[in-house]
Each structure stands twice: as C-alpha cells, then as structure tokens.
Design a protein around this nucleic acid. Structure first.
Length: 327
DNA sequence: GAACCCTACGTGCCTCTCGG
DNA sequence: CCGAGAGGCACGTAGGGTTC
C-alpha cells in the first residue's frame, strides 16, 4: 500500500473527525472473494468511524481519472462482495470531477479537500462554510427558460433537444443538462424515440407551474440605470412598466426594460449612479426575447421578477395576471 | 454515412476568502 | 477596506457512440 496516500487519508480523517481514525488492512480471506481485476486495482482498508463502519478503497493516481460511471460500477461490485459500504479514496482530482462523483452519489474522500460519504451522512468540502449558492434547490437559468418555454404553451413534445436549443439560443449540451435537471426535480421526463430525445411534461401546465414555483428564481440579475436616446426600444418592457400595461397598476415614472445580461456586457452603456439616466434596465439571466416576441416580457417571468417585492398593489396585479393567464 | 446525443474536458465570469 | 487568488458555476467545443 502506498504509504503516502495512507498517511494523507489518516491525517485528513483525523482533522475532520477530531481524533485518530480506526483503520486496519482488510483480512486476506475477504479479499480473496473479490474478482482479480478489482483486487489488484485498489488497496483496501477497514474503517470504524463514529458514524459507522465502511471500507475505504484506495485508488492509484493512474486510475483516478476514470469516469464516475466506471467508479460507480466497481463500487457496486465491491459493496456486494464485501457486504459493507465502500468509499473511494482518490488523490487530487479536478473539482468538476468531484462534482460529478457527488452527482452520481459515488462516496469518496479526497484527503485534504473533500469528503462525501452520504451513507454516513457526511459531506464536507474545503470551503464548506461557504453559503451554498443556488445549490440544489433552484433551477439553473437555462432550465428555467426551458420550463417557461413549455409553460407558455410552446410545443416541446416530439421536438428534439437540438431544435429546442436552437429555439432558446443555447447549445445542445446546455439543453441536455437542462432536461436532466427537470428530470431530477421530477418536473419532466426525457423520452427517447429512436435517435432523438424529447422532453415530456407529465402534468398539466398549471400543475407544473405550481410544483416548480419554489424552484424558480427571478430572471433579473441586476438593475442598472441607463441613458437611452435612440428611437428604438432597448429591449422589452419589464417590471412595473410591463405590469402597468397588463393591469390597472400605475406605471412607474421611469420606463423599465429587460435585456439579456450577456448582451449588456458586450456594449456597456451603463451610466454612473450619480448621473441621471432616463430608463432602468433589468439585466436578465436568460434572453427574454426567446420567450416572448411582443413588446412585453412573458407574464410568467414577469411574475417571478416581481413576486419578491413588498408592495401590496403589485401583488394584487400579479395575482390578476395569473388568473387571466391561459393555461 | 448522417443525424443526434452524450461524455470528457476547457473556459470565462462571478463570488467568496484572506492577507496586507 | 480592498485586491488577488481560489474555486464553483454555467456554458461551450471536440469527439465518440448509437441509431437509423
């Protein structure tokens, strides 16, 4: 067994647990039950932790880069034969690979960096005190755009991911990720028909909206003041400007427009806070034009952008929009 | 072989942390 | 308090596998 990785594991566990871990080499006869390709691939340690007993399988530097699915497959066999939960011990691997292991629920330890042992309810990473950002409880921007695209009544059944990607202005990869995320949150299913995959929403649009409400966030990343002199519109009407056109709400004194945040960065017309701009620009995390081709942003994104405000009149207007929405 | 999707990996931006 | 650096997230590209 490579001494250095054993030492690294021991001292990392000690740091995490607060005391020296109880580790011992696994007995020869239990090892003998393993298929040869697995026996030679890993070094095994029996571990008794406060939270329970597990087996650590130490992975060599050269095997660490294997895909998560390879690791997952091997773990399945190991757990069955050894009859205990098994966790991989990996040398330094890039963060995106660690993320993928977590995604696939593969238990592992990277000494010094991260520990993910879901069966023992342990999940630590180097910066675990950092507030979990948009972690597992909100949809990503692209996923939300796809979901709203469906909720607005656009056809998604029998449409390939590629076509959807085209329609929404994302890469196929991003749409593939988005459909997977919808599946994870049990909002939709991916249905394979021959060589194409389409997204299928099992519920009605209204029920999907209700189920997804707590997972969706405001499309607005940032609001800036800007000076707009051109006769064309900077984007689509948004915020209370849009709400005023849809309901009886009084319009705000400044016009509010939505533009994709990505476009804004390209040509920065932002003016300093102290200067007087004549409009407000909402910078959106997805492209509002992909979801509405009218003068106004789509009503569902509008709802999400304003539901956090404290103004009672706005809430009443928002409820009115939902009531009138054609589900 | 073409069309399509997925895996592996790269990149840029943003946020958080930490040392001066 | 601020700037640099680290790390995570979201997205992209390349290339390979699968289905027709």
């Amino acid at each position: 067994m490579p001494m250095r990785s054993l030492e690294a594991l021991t001292s990392y566990l000690e740091q995490v647990l607060g005391h020296a871990p109880d580790l011992s080499p696994i007995s020869k006869d239990r090892l003998a039950a393993l298929p040869l390709y697995l026996r030679s691939r890993y070094d095994f340690l029996d571990a008794r932790l406060d939270q329970g007993k597990i087996v650590f399988a130490l992975v060599s530097e050269s095997d660490a880069a294997d895909s998560p699915s390879v690791h997952a497959g091997n773990l399945e066999v190991l757990e069955r034969v050894l009859n205990k939960p098994v966790a991989l011990v990996l040398p330094g691997i890039p963060s995106y690979q660690r993320n993928r292991l977590v995604h696939q629920r593969v238990p592992f330890v990277v000494p010094g960096s991260q520990l993910f042992l879901p069966m023992l309810m342990m999940d630590l990473r180097e910066s675990f005190q950092r507030a979990p950002r948009s972690s597992g409880d909100t949809l990503s921007a692209s996923t939300q755009a796809l979901l709203i695209f469906y909720l607005l009544g656009n056809p998604v059944r029998d449409v390939t991911l590629n076509e959807l990607a085209d329609r929404l202005g994302y890469s196929a990869m991003t749409l593939s990720n988005a459909s997977r995320q919808l599946e994870e949150f049990e909002l939709a299913k991916s249905e394979r028909q021959g060589r194409s995959v389409s997204v299928v929403f099992p519920r009605s649009r209204r029920r999907t909206w209700q189920k997804a409400l707590k997972l969706m966030s405001s499309p607005v990343k940032r609001v800036v003041r800007a000076n707009w002199q051109s006769s064309s519109n900077p984007g689509q009407k948004a915020g209370t400007s849009a709400l005023a056109e849809m309901t009886m709400l009084d319009a705000s004194s400044y016009a509010i427009w939505a533009v994709p945040a990505a476009e804004w960065r390209a040509d920065s017309r932002e003016i300093p806070e102290s200067d007087r701009g004549n409009i407000w620009l909402e910078l959106w995390k997805y492209n509002p034009r992909r979801l509405s081709d009218g003068e106004l942003v789509d009503p569902l994104s509008l709802y999400l952008s304003l539901r956090g405000t404290g103004d009672e009149r706005i809430h009443i207007a928002l409820e009115q929009i939902l009531e009138e929405f054609q589900w």
